[in-house]
């Protein structure tokens, strides 16, 4: 989706601000949020691609204003609600309960049965031969999907050269929406700065990015 998360090449965010001696987590709630994804993911309630989709689907102003782990919190909640692990209003109800009774004790429940037979890792056996090989000239498709994708805007409609074959992997555009893993070949593709940014591109600069096969066309098919 053409969201605000797709930041490559944007202006206006200012200088990089480095915090010296930064702690791993700034607040206790961030530790909780970090740990909260592992149970649902292990039970197949949502996968990493759906997790990313939930972040990208945040209202854009909220996305930009939110801190990193607040975005995690939002996608955990929206994914759990989507999968009906949380009922509508259940979270708000618990906030009310905890406000009235801060020492509310919950009984640790039994984990639900795993939903999907989620395979570990991201690599999958290839069912078709790879279409491209290192050295091939390729064109990134100019496709503006409304759903989750890992083809950023700044790469679309640009010409590059395949640098390396990376293997056959789960396809996020499908997996993020519960439409199956639909694995595809992945390639590292090199794009020259002049191709990406025209006259604004720096000299002797290039971007390498990993792209799934269906993001790419042979360069002559423009």
């Amino acid at each position: 989706m053409n969201g605000v998360h797709d930041m490559g090449g944007m202006h206006g965010f200012g200088p990089v601000e480095v915090e010296q001696n930064e702690p791993v987590f700034h607040w206790d709630w961030e530790r909780t949020v970090y740990a909260a994804i592992s149970g649902p993911m292990r039970r197949g309630i949502f996968n990493l691609d759906a997790f990313r989709r939930g972040i990208e689907s945040m209202e854009p102003v909220h996305y930009l204003r939110a801190s990193y782990y607040e975005r995690w919190l939002e996608t955990i909640i929206s994914n759990l609600e989507e999968q009906r692990v949380l009922a509508p209003g259940e979270l708000d109800g618990r906030i009310v309960d905890l406000t009235a009774n801060p020492d509310l004790v919950v009984v640790t429940g039994r984990p639900p049965a795993a939903r999907l037979a989620m395979l570990p890792g991201f690599r999958r056996p290839a069912l078709t031969p790879a279409r491209f090989a290192p050295g091939d000239a390729v064109l990134a498709r100019n496709r503006h999907t409304a759903g989750h994708t890992r083809l950023p805007r700044y790469i679309r409609a640009k010409r590059g050269a395949v640098h390396a074959y990376r293997g056959c992997m789960v396809f996020p555009d499908s997996n993020a929406h519960g439409r199956g893993e639909a694995p595809e070949h992945v390639y590292s593709v090199r794009f020259e700065a002049a191709e990406l940014w025209g006259e604004s591109g720096g000299r002797r600069e290039a971007v390498y990015i990993d792209l799934w096969e269906s993001y790419l066309l042979p360069a002559e098919e423009r």
């Binding site: 970090y34 955990i76 979270l91 919950v106 639900p112």
Partner: peptide, 23 residues
Amino acid sequence: IVSRVRALESLLMEKGLLEPGMV
């Protein structure tokens, strides 16, 4: 945010998706 995280933690524990000590 802190209240939402507390509520989420409480619900995840109740549903068996977060064990005590797991954080």
